[in-house]
């Protein structure tokens, strides 16, 4: 009787698998064609004409994680804007730039973008707490949007405080605030596994600034490592 139940369960699983595969074979091409059209529209609207969007992975399977290539004549800001626009198309699950087989991996400029956003505005927290002030919601939306092209990289969120008060409390507070920002980014759709946090308390004040200065209370973002698509040996002549 036990074997029979197990067999029924396995048959159900096999049936589900067959259903999934058949469903993808039947509807996949149409679904991806729709994504393709919307991605192309988003690209053109962002001014990224010339960027090719490939909806096939390196094994040739259809995917909803497109690989971008070309657009070499465009400046970095346009490329980033184009990538961000494509990434926000509903249904698309993250994008990557292909390493065109020459030179280093494409450098994404999310970190610069985020720094530019945070130059004039800061993420605000409630006094002595790690609760993000609701007034910073829109700012966090913008930060998320500019980090999205770097999905696949490790993004470090670091919290800092000024040196008033107990250093241990400051350390915990900066960690808590970095953690709160991380969760806010996850809530906005960034994948959790690429987001790391650290709290440095008041140990790293802004260079040239008095450690007491409240301007030292801040959240910094750094894109530590980007994970470009590894080219296959065929793409890189001379590779072993």
């Amino acid at each position: 009787m036990k074997t029979r139940n197990a067999l029924i369960a396995a048959a159900g699983a096999a049936l589900s698998l067959a259903l999934a595969t058949a469903g993808t074979a039947r509807n996949g091409p149409r679904f991806v064609a729709g994504l393709e059209a919307r991605a192309a529209a988003a690209r053109d609207q962002a001014g990224g004409q010339g960027v090719a969007i490939a909806f096939r992975d390196r094994y040739g399977w259809l995917t909803r994680h497109p690989i971008l290539s070309g657009g070499d004549g465009l400046d970095a800001a346009t490329r980033t804007r184009t990538a961000a626009a494509i990434a926000t198309v509903p249904g698309i699950g993250g994008i990557r730039w292909v390493n065109d087989g020459q030179g280093g991996p494409r450098v994404l400029h999310c970190q610069d973008d985020v720094e530019r956003i945070l130059e004039t505005r800061t993420i605000r927290f409630s006094e002595a707490s790690a609760r993000i002030d609701p007034a910073s919601d829109r700012l966090l939306d913008e930060v998320t949007r500019s980090l999205r092209p770097c999905v696949g990289s490790i993004i470090a969120v670091t919290g800092h405080t000024d040196d008033s008060g107990d250093p241990a409390v400051n350390l915990a507070l900066s960690q808590g605030r970095a953690e709160a920002v991380r969760w806010a980014l996850i809530a906005r759709g960034l994948p959790a596994d690429g987001l790391r946090t650290a709290g440095l308390g008041s140990t790293k004040p802004i260079a040239g600034l008095d450690p007491h200065d409240p301007a030292n209370r801040r959240i910094e973002f750094s894109v530590i490592q980007s994970a470009p698509v590894k080219p296959t040996p065929i793409d890189t002549p001379g590779a072993e």
Binding site: A13, S16, T21, T24, G28, L62, T63
Partner: peptide, 30 residues
């Protein structure tokens, strides 16, 4: 991740969860 694999994972996951809940309900005492 190819589309078919995403689909297969999500369908199997749904099946597994449904199966698990069904199993628990079916074998509930009382």
């Amino acid at each position: 991740m190819p589309l078919w694999l995403e689909m297969a994972v999500s369908v199997l996951l749904t099946y597994g969860i449904g199966f698990g809940i069904g199993w628990l309900l079916w074998n509930r005492k009382g």
